[in-house]
Design a protein around this nucleic acid. Structure first.
Lengths: 192, 192
DNA sequence: ATCCCATGTGTACGACCGTACACAACGATA
DNA sequence: TATCGTTGTGTACGGTCGTACACATGGGAT
């Protein structure tokens, strides 16, 4: 029977929020728009998420998990001995080649942390997760630098409408990676 | 002539818009909030800027000029022979050390281009300006890479609440800069 | 002097928003 | 069965928004 208590409801609302942000941006996110998209009454969204920030946190976390899956799909990232810079460049290319709305969605949620302190821990989790993945191939300092550089490259593409250039990305990413076989070179810079 | 056209008014509105965005974010920007801040009637803002995007374009352009001044103030950037990576790291440090609201303001306007195509040409102008400045010290490919890396480093600081580490920044920026004195090394990567 | 129209202002309208809160449904308990 | 508290729903209120539009103003053309 249609039980009064619906554990699926919360998930449905988050999914709807992600769709709304993807379609209309965070600016278009409201209790009402989410309720309409999820086909639940208005009161239901305010019941599960007292504030919009709560909803954004849940959406960002869920979107982050989706992104992590994309990374995991590039399984070769874990294989040592392969061209790390080239693989990262390819990964970025694949991601950016997807539909623009999806890319915009994830980046917009990520960047929203600039103004919403509530999102910053989630953004940090996200970055830490990627950093940990990369640490299996290089030292932590390089991993952080690679993330920064990849973020910047994406920004250039998304903000200035220039096309993504995989070879260019591979070239500059390679510069950040210390030379020498196994990748873990002693480094003097202060770590985290 | 054209006494009726009042450029001062337009400027005042833009300044007010920048203050509003700095204080309340783009989300808090409206014809009304700007009109109140600039102490002009509501109709005046809608007359000078039919749409909010127009106002944002003007604000971003003006903020960009302000940022360019900050860069120009670091005059040593033009002197060859100095440590480029170290100077860029110091520049970033100075900028990030300023009041957070100002930094947030400029970055938020910049990042808004993600969702507002109207802002993208202005964002591109901004990046091109910085790139041109850097090209006096290195080749164009490196200049673009430095910008991407600096953008990414700022993002890490602003989005995840980690403190800015100048030495770390100098270290990774130096990796991107090709070795060898004059900086202009032949590079195979495709240009702009 | 008279008129015209670009420039600038005030106000009102309909739409959407977050929030509050009374109420419906139902499981648990006695 | 009767009652109660948790869970979920509908609606209405006050506020802000973009926009439209009628009106003021004053310089240039005739």
């Amino acid at each position: 029977m249609a039980r009064r208590y619906d554990p699926e409801r919360r998930r449905r609302i988050i999914d709807a929020a992600i769709r709304v942000v993807g379609a209309k941006g965070i600016a278009g996110l409201s209790h009402r728009s989410v309720a309409a998209e999820a086909d639940v009454p208005l009161g239901s969204t305010t019941y599960h998420f007292k504030t919009l920030d709560e909803l954004l946190v849940a959406a960002l976390r869920q979107a982050g998990e989706g992104f992590a899956k994309v990374i995991a799909a590039h399984g070769s990232l874990s294989d040592p001995g392969t061209d790390l810079a080239g693989e990262l460049a390819a990964l970025l290319g694949d991601w950016l080649a997807g539909d623009r709305t999806g890319v915009e969605l994830e980046y917009e949620l990520y960047l929203a942390a600039l103004r919403r302190p509530a999102l910053r821990p989630v953004a940090a989790e996200w970055a830490d997760g990627v950093a940990e993945l990369l640490t299996r191939r290089t030292d932590p300092v390089t991993a952080r630098a690679l993330i920064a550089l990849m973020d910047g490259l994406c920004l250039q593409v998304l903000l200035t409408d220039v096309a993504y250039d995989k070879e260019y990305a591979r070239e500059v990413l390679a510069r950040v990676i210390p030379e020498g076989g196994s990748g873990a070179r002693p480094v003097d810079a202060p770590g985290t």
